[in-house]
Simulated scan of single mutants.
Amino acid sequence: MRIGELSRRTGVSVRSLRYYEEQGLLSPVRRPSGYREYGEGDVTTVRAIRLMLAAGLNTATIAELLPCMVEDGELLTPACSGMLPDLHRERERLNDAVAELLAARDVLDSIIAATAPAPDGDLVCPVSPGRSA
């Protein structure tokens, strides 16, 4: 199948599919005409890539892990036990990012709480928009 058909079947843009190829995640056969030719296995691969991206993994990590992943129906599972440390590392990275976002939200909440409303309910702003204090 050509790239447009793979895009239609997976719901992934042609641009993203080309990006996946650039990152070494997909390896279509090149026809003499230069067209990319994809097989049925590429549909599964693209779905696995999308799932791992949704899990917060970057394409470099996906390139390392993809050869050891197998699709079991709708579930993507590691076939190599040696990749568990990598998955735990990525989970910890996500936990750290979540903690940073929660801390940023707490700071924003404190700024919101410290902003005094005017008697009419509008915010009091001593500086007009577009002007510096």
Score class of each variant (00 low, 15 high):
residue 115 T to M: 14
residue 45 T to Q: 07
residue 92 E to C: 11
residue 5 E to Q: 10
residue 103 A to S: 12
residue 36 R to F: 02
residue 45 T to R: 15
residue 22 E to Q: 15
residue 105 R to P: 04
residue 110 S to R: 14
residue 14 V to E: 04
residue 90 E to Q: 14
residue 66 L to R: 00
residue 68 C to W: 01
residue 132 S to W: 14
residue 28 P to L: 02
residue 7 S to Q: 05
residue 8 R to A: 08
residue 64 E to S: 12
residue 97 A to F: 03
residue 54 A to W: 01
residue 80 C to S: 10
residue 112 I to G: 08
residue 8 R to E: 12
residue 62 I to D: 02
residue 55 A to N: 03
residue 7 S to H: 10
residue 43 V to S: 01
residue 28 P to E: 03
residue 99 A to C: 05
residue 67 P to A: 07
residue 37 E to I: 02
residue 11 G to I: 01
residue 40 E to T: 08
residue 119 P to A: 15
residue 95 N to E: 15
residue 87 L to V: 10
residue 83 M to Y: 06
residue 46 V to N: 04
residue 128 S to L: 15
residue 96 D to K: 13
residue 36 R to M: 01
residue 35 Y to Q: 11
residue 82 G to Q: 04
residue 8 R to K: 11
residue 127 V to S: 14
residue 74 E to M: 05
residue 104 A to K: 08
residue 75 L to K: 07
residue 97 A to Y: 07
residue 95 N to F: 13
residue 131 R to W: 11
residue 19 Y to M: 14
residue 30 R to S: 07
residue 111 I to Q: 13
residue 37 E to R: 00
residue 92 E to H: 11
residue 43 V to Q: 01
residue 132 S to Y: 14
residue 127 V to G: 11
residue 63 A to Q: 00
residue 44 T to N: 08
residue 29 V to M: 09
residue 1 M to A: 06
residue 124 V to R: 15
residue 21 E to A: 05
residue 98 V to Y: 11
residue 125 C to R: 14
residue 111 I to C: 14
residue 118 A to E: 09
residue 70 V to N: 03
residue 23 Q to H: 10
residue 16 S to V: 02
residue 105 R to S: 10
residue 74 E to C: 09
residue 26 L to K: 02
residue 54 A to R: 06
residue 96 D to C: 13
residue 67 P to Y: 05
residue 114 A to V: 03
residue 57 L to P: 04
residue 125 C to M: 15
residue 49 I to R: 00
residue 84 L to W: 12
residue 120 D to S: 13
residue 104 A to N: 09
residue 45 T to S: 10
residue 56 G to Y: 03
residue 100 E to M: 07
residue 122 D to Q: 15
residue 70 V to W: 04
residue 76 L to N: 01
residue 50 R to P: 02
residue 130 G to T: 03
residue 36 R to Q: 08
residue 119 P to C: 14
residue 82 G to W: 01
residue 117 P to A: 11
residue 7 S to D: 08
residue 70 V to A: 08
residue 7 S to I: 06
